[in-house]
Design a protein around this nucleic acid. Structure first.
Lengths: 110, 110
DNA sequence: CTGATCTACAACCATTTGGTTGTAGGATAT
DNA sequence: ATATCCTACAACCAAATGGTTGTAGATCAG
């Protein structure tokens, strides 16, 4: 059963967000601890604005949320987003296994 | 334990490949049955060349293989590629649960 | 042999992407 | 009050993306 239906555009954004090394690294970081945008920016050899854009991409993909705290913006991982991506790949995996099962049946018939 | 190490570039290609509705649809199709490139092309409202490019993207991402049969090129899903993507998301999931565990520990201490 | 089919690939185009610098505004510390 | 820090956002640029059309090489059917 499909629990929640994601639109094509949402899935596009989700996987697009994962398709960049810096963004995957940010995901790993914010899964473990709390980071401000500038805190994240200090970790990479690129401008603050570039990191800011990466965070924005993750945010639009619902993989991350931002919360203002004083003058900082705290970035937090959003578990739901990650689960949605995982669920889709699980679906594909299931389709695959289903076929593998059918092939086994066909071989058994012969 | 990490079974096989994927380079950043490989992961970029993997997720990039999933970040398109047409390509995800192709993946679903070839997971179930056999399709030639032109067979796939007939399914979508775009040129043959466009579909050919999509298949090429999937191929470079190791999500699909092509095999020449007569004048046709048969496209087949590659289970390994799919598993690699899934495995990465599982890793993230694990990192997440680990943190959830730590938080539970911290709460238990208080 | 001829014609139709399937594929590959180049050239082109508009849009998006990933990066930059620069400007401006709100929050903090001294 | 002033200087500093963090953020937002615009403008710009080069490269990649997703699409097109056109050309040409194999393979198959009649």
């Amino acid at each position: 059963m499909v629990v929640d239906q994601l639109s094509d555009a949402e899935l596009d954004r989700l996987f697009q967000a994962f398709a960049d090394t810096t963004r995957r690294d940010i995901m790993r970081r914010v899964a473990v601890g709390e980071y401000s945008v500038s805190g994240l920016a200090s970790l990479y050899a690129m401008s603050f604005a570039a990191v800011q854009k990466h965070v924005a991409v993750l945010e639009r993909a619902s993989l991350v949320t931002k919360e203002k705290r004083g003058r900082e913006q705290i970035v937090r991982g959003n578990h739901e987003g990650l689960q949605k991506a995982r669920r889709l790949l699980d679906e594909y995996e299931a389709i695959w296994r289903q076929r593998a099962g059918r092939i086994a049946d066909i071989l058994a018939e012969e």
